[in-house]
Amino acid sequence: FPVNYLWQEWVPGNPWKYEFYNGGFVVSDFTNMTGADYKNQCSVYNQSGGHNDANFIVANGYSVANGASVSYDKCAKIYLTDKTGYQVVLSDPDQPVSGEAHYGTFNSVWVCNTTYSYLAMKDGNGIAHALKDDNGWFKVVFVAMDKNCKPTGKTVSYYLANFDASKTKESGLDNEIRTGWNKVDLSGLGDNVCTVAIDFEGSDVGAYGINTPAYVALDDLEIKVNE
């Protein structure tokens, strides 16, 4: 189940070659905990790096409104697929990827804030507001999908920060930003999942979408592929 560096899926003609800036992953071992801007977008807010070793991945991107529906094309996605991997097929909107798909259960994943997101949520950055000033919140949402990248309707949400008293119980956070690596149970996505999109939701929203930098560090994904 490779994490693929796919071409951008959502614009016909594919003007951008790499997906990270519009929904994708990078592998990193950066641990700069003071750089507060986009030039430090690949650092985890954890001095020792990943959960069990130095390396981890950073997911970037979030869903956008598309008429009456929501498009997940700009979300990073993890595909269960054969060893040849998926390739984007821009000419066939009903078949967003080619390659042999597999189904399975996404059991769990370890999650940590990135430095860029953490410091933006803590102090603001001229675009994003400090969440404590607005009783704000921010969370990552894992979205189960089938082989055609269509949502199954099952999601798992995990709060990365919360300063809203009405969300203290559901978030498990009381006026705080989450620190360190934390294990997230993904069994709520179901046992017949082909693709998982990593989406974000937050209270700090402007004319162009979420102001909070839409990044999260992930490590030690545990899955079981169906026979």
Rank of each mutant, 00 (worst) to 15 (best):
T152P: 12
H129Y: 09
N162K: 05
T195L: 11
Y158L: 05
D185A: 12
A101F: 01
Y158P: 00
W137L: 10
S69V: 14
C75D: 13
Y21R: 13
G35P: 04
Q8V: 15
D191R: 08
A161M: 06
L6V: 11
T81D: 04
F138D: 03
D191S: 06
I223M: 03
Y103W: 02
V184K: 14
S91F: 12
L221M: 15
V27P: 06
S28F: 01
K150M: 13
W181Y: 11
S48H: 10
S108D: 02
F142N: 07
N40L: 03
A207E: 10
T81M: 03
V44K: 00
C194Y: 04
S91I: 14
N52Q: 02
V58Y: 00
V64Y: 11
E170N: 05
S28D: 02
R178F: 14
A54H: 09
A120M: 01
Y208I: 10
D134P: 03
V70L: 11
S43L: 03
S171E: 06
V141E: 01
D219Y: 00
S166V: 08
N32M: 02
G190Y: 10
P2A: 03
K17V: 10
F56C: 05
C42K: 15
G85R: 08
F56S: 05
D53E: 02
Y118F: 08
L80Q: 04
V109H: 04
Q41R: 13
T212A: 12
V193S: 15
M145A: 07
A54E: 13
S71F: 10
S157F: 03
H51C: 12
K183R: 14
I223E: 00
S48A: 15
E201H: 06
I78V: 14
P2V: 07
Y18T: 07
N52K: 04
G126L: 04
K169L: 04
W7I: 15
W16H: 11
D191A: 05
K74L: 13
G23E: 06
F25A: 04
D185N: 15
Q87P: 04
W181T: 08
K147F: 06
G209V: 10
P12Y: 12
S91C: 13
K139T: 09
A165G: 07
D174K: 11
N55E: 08
I223S: 01
V193F: 14
V205R: 15
C194K: 01
S166Q: 09
V216E: 10
A207L: 12
I210P: 08
Q8G: 05
D133Q: 07
K122D: 03
Y21C: 09
N22T: 15
K147M: 10
P213Y: 08
N148P: 07
Y5W: 14
G180Y: 01
D82H: 06
Y21Q: 11
D164Q: 07
P15D: 06
S157K: 07
N14F: 03
D146W: 13
E9F: 11
D53S: 00
D133R: 07
T168G: 00
D146F: 11
V156N: 11
F56M: 03
N175P: 08
A120C: 08
V109E: 01
D94Q: 15
E222M: 09
N40K: 09
S157C: 01
